[in-house]
């Protein structure tokens, strides 16, 4: 029997629909406080760890987190990477226009790390443990992007 050759007609099948997630009380409070240049976290009553951004439950203790704390906007660079690519729409790998720095910031008195863009430091000068401070956008809107980036303090 003659082997049928697979064809290469490839119709594009997009999946473009919208999910309307409600962020919930915790993220709503976090976002609203960004408007006042405040970083809010929650503290676990059992292990005492402070999480920023806040969330409702502590995974390791299985406790509800309801003690709110305002946290410092300074900390140290716990980890960093220099990105040479971007994932467009989270998927397609493309070369970045120019290398950019992402950092995991260990805020003072916070136990979780905060992922943010890092600016005003050359990639070659990046060092774990560098002191960092939060830099805000000029116009605050209670949006995720209000906290613009971190830079050396």
């Amino acid at each position: 029997m003659e082997e049928l050759r697979e064809t290469y007609i490839t119709p594009v099948v997009p999946l473009d629909f919208t999910y309307n997630y409600r962020v919930g009380q915790y993220m709503e409070r976090f976002l609203n406080s960004l408007k006042d240049k405040k970083l809010m976290g929650v503290k676990c009553p059992e292990c005492g760890k402070v999480f920023v951004p806040p969330r409702m439950f502590c995974g390791s203790c299985n406790q509800k987190l309801d003690e709110w704390v305002e946290v410092a906007q300074t900390g140290m660079l716990a980890n960093f990477t220099v990105g040479h690519v971007v994932l467009e729409k989270g998927a397609r790998l493309a070369k970045a226009e120019s290398p950019y720095v992402l950092g995991l910031i260990k805020l003072d008195d916070v136990d979780s790390l905060l992922l943010a863009r890092v600016e005003k430091v050359a990639p070659a000068d990046l060092k774990k443990g560098m002191r960092m401070k939060a830099v805000w956008k000029e116009e605050l809107a209670g949006d995720y992007s209000d906290l613009d980036h971190f830079e050396p303090a």
Binding site: G90, L115, A116
Partner: peptide, 23 residues
């Protein structure tokens, strides 16, 4: 990369757009 990108927390990590499988 969709596999991990769309496993990310939709109300924070996906909104910021900084985290992905490779970073």
């Amino acid at each position: 990369y969709l596999h991990i990108s769309y496993s990310l927390n939709p109300i924070y990590d996906r909104q910021l757009g900084l985290l992905n499988e490779l970073s």
